[in-house]
Amino acid sequence: MRAVITVVGKDMVGILAKVSGLCARYNANVVEVTQSVLQDMFAMVMLADISQLSVDMPEFSDAMTQLGDSLALSIHVMHEDIFNSMHRI
């Protein structure tokens, strides 16, 4: 089971570290990362294996949202199935 974590917002030092730190704390294994910085805007998409997650997914998702709020970033955690079903036939 894998989750897609997206982070969008103003670029600053340590975003990747903080997000991946939180993944580690909840035992989510980061599989892939794509990121780009356009002007000041930071956008990152992270694919994480959540089959060994130490909490259930809603709690993990809440923790990420809170981290996002504290950094003024928009962070979403969504199951990869939603993207697969929407964009692949």
Partner: peptide, 16 residues
């Protein structure tokens, strides 16, 4: 990996 544009499109649909 799933296409980044597709991911952002889905999030935009939901958020905005």
């Amino acid at each position: 990996m799933i296409n980044v544009d597709d991911i952002l499109e889905t999030i935009k649909m939901i958020e905005e």
